[in-house]
């Protein structure tokens, strides 16, 4: 007769992970309306009191492209040897990069910025992390629309592989979400994490040949040899521009790593969930 029996007691997991995973999946599926409403909450308020409004979504990549064009033209960075006009190359790169960097920033702050109601209402907190990625994906779609306009302006027909794009970014999204699960937890306890990640991401953008070509620079090639983020950005871009890529294997390995990080982050988050309300 009573379907809803809950038991709360001090938690320490010794349980079987395989028993827990289906519950986690179910919890996530059952939260889809919550995720959607939390996304709407962010989306509707994001540019509510702003003059430029949604133009900000395009302003960020445009500024980055202009910056790197200037850096490239002055010879500081190498942007030669690109098969398409630089704005296409740059916009693809920065849009993919923003999924990771913007996504990581959004997820990191997602829990701590909801502190006011986390301590008052009991709900699935993972929904906050997942929904915060929604904004990033909206930005990505807007930027891809801009990309198509640029293609048209240059009179270039995009490679048919463009249609694969949504699928090619899935590993990157999973990696972001997995890391976001962990960083959002850390940020509830130590508020430095957000700023720290912000600084690291700014640094990383310059260390990866995303907005420029690696050229002959051995240092850049060496440090990115084992960088999954790099492959998750480079390979999809290659495929969009050229229809193929020379780093498919690296991309697949990176995707596997992303999947593992995603699962790991999710499990960690699941186990820590009951402690979040007292930590924020």
């Amino acid at each position: 007769m009573i379907k809803d029996i809950k038991i709360y007691k001090p938690i320490f997991y010794r349980g079987n992970l395989l028993n827990r995973l289906p519950i986690m999946v179910l919890e996530l599926i059952n939260s889809k309306e919550l995720i959607w409403q939390l996304f709407l909450r962010d989306f509707k308020t994001r540019y509510k009191q702003s003059l430029l409004g949604f133009f900000w979504i395009l302003l960020i990549p445009l500024m980055a492209i202009v910056t790197f064009l200037l850096l490239g033209n002055s010879g500081i960075l190498d942007i030669s040897d690109i098969p398409v006009p630089y704005p296409i190359y740059g916009l693809l790169g920065i849009s993919l990069w923003q999924i990771f960097s913007g996504g990581l920033m959004a997820t990191t702050s997602s829990i701590s910025s909801a502190a006011s109601f986390i301590t008052k209402i009991n709900f699935f907190k993972g929904a906050l992390v997942v929904s915060s990625l929604g904004q990033v994906l909206i930005d990505f779609i807007a930027r891809m629309t801009l990309l198509i306009i640029i293609y048209i302006l240059y009179g270039i027909i995009p490679n048919p592989s463009f249609l694969l794009f949504p699928f090619l970014v899935i590993p990157l999204v999973l990696l972001t979400l997995g890391l976001g699960f962990i960083t959002s937890l850390l940020n509830t306890i130590i508020k430095d994490i957000y700023n720290l990640i912000n600084i690291i991401l700014g640094f990383l953008l310059f260390l990866m040949p995303i907005m420029y070509t690696p050229g002959e620079n051995n240092f850049i090639i060496q440090i990115n040899k084992y960088n999954p983020v790099y492959y998750l950005i480079k390979t999809p871009r290659d495929i969009i521009i050229l229809g193929s890529s020379n780093t498919i294997n690296e991309y697949l390995i990176s995707s596997l790593i992303s999947l593992i990080i995603f699962l790991l982050g999710w499990i960690i988050f699941d186990r820590a969930q009951s402690k979040i309300a007292e930590a924020v």
Binding site: I7, Y8, K9, P10, I11, I118, T119, A277, E278
Partner: peptide, 9 residues
């Protein structure tokens, strides 16, 4: 919202 440190609910 809060989990007990001892006992059971």
């Amino acid at each position: 919202i809060l989990n007990p440190d001892e006992g059971e609910i």
